[in-house]
């Protein structure tokens, strides 16, 4: 099968939790509905970086599971998750942050990965080598990558598909 999230060497160097200004994964404050009000970095997200992130196998790879009008040129989007077209009409910023940081707190038991989470990981691996993880503190995405994705999704304000 295709690798879902190939963490390249470059991405590996930006281990998220060691960047002091960021909220560490275990310090993120969730509301009861799973949303996260506060920015993880205090730095505004960049939707262009978000798009790159969402459509790259090496980073967020949201296209593995979602189609969206906002990335209609991406080859072979998957359909394990719902279409994200018009998603800005459905969720606000805090809800989107909650879904991305730890999807399970919004959608119980969901197949969608938790992108900024260190808990309940069974047999963590070292990227896609199949070997054991060398650090227990690796998340799939960095705090800023999450903020960039939120900025992107907030631009998805098309009318909702039927």
């Amino acid at each position: 099968m295709r690798k879902l999230f190939v963490l390249g060497a470059a991405a590996m160097m930006t281990l998220p939790s060691v960047l002091s200004a960021d909220t560490a994964p275990r310090d993120v404050a969730f509301a009861d509905d799973g949303s996260v009000a506060e920015s993880l970095t205090g730095v505004a997200g960049d939707p262009t970086a978000g798009l790159e992130n969402a459509t790259s196998r090496g980073i967020g790879n949201c296209v593995a599971c979602h189609v969206a009008e906002g990335w209609k040129d991406a080859a072979f989007p998957g359909n394990v998750g719902p279409a994200l077209t018009g998603i800005a009409n459905v969720y606000d910023e805090s809800q989107l942050r909650g879904i991305l940081v730890n999807s399970k707190k919004t959608f119980e038991g969901t197949v969608m990965p938790s992108f900024y989470n260190l808990d309940d990981i069974i047999r963590p691996g070292d990227a896609y080598t199949g070997k054991a993880a060398t650090s227990p503190d690796v998340t799939i995405l960095t705090a800023q990558q999450i903020e960039d994705l939120i900025a992107l999704l907030l631009t998805f304000d098309e009318p909702l598909p039927e």
């Binding site: 072979f76 309940d120 069974i122 691996g125």
Partner: peptide
């Protein structure tokens, strides 16, 4: 049924819940 790895996915998540769907270009 155990959800392994950073992606927290079990065999069942892909092959039971999602067979017939596509994960990127791969038909599960």
């Amino acid at each position: 049924y155990t959800r392994y790895g950073l992606l927290q996915l079990s065999c069942a998540n892909c092959h039971e819940q999602n067979n017939g769907n596509y994960i990127r270009a791969d038909h599960l």
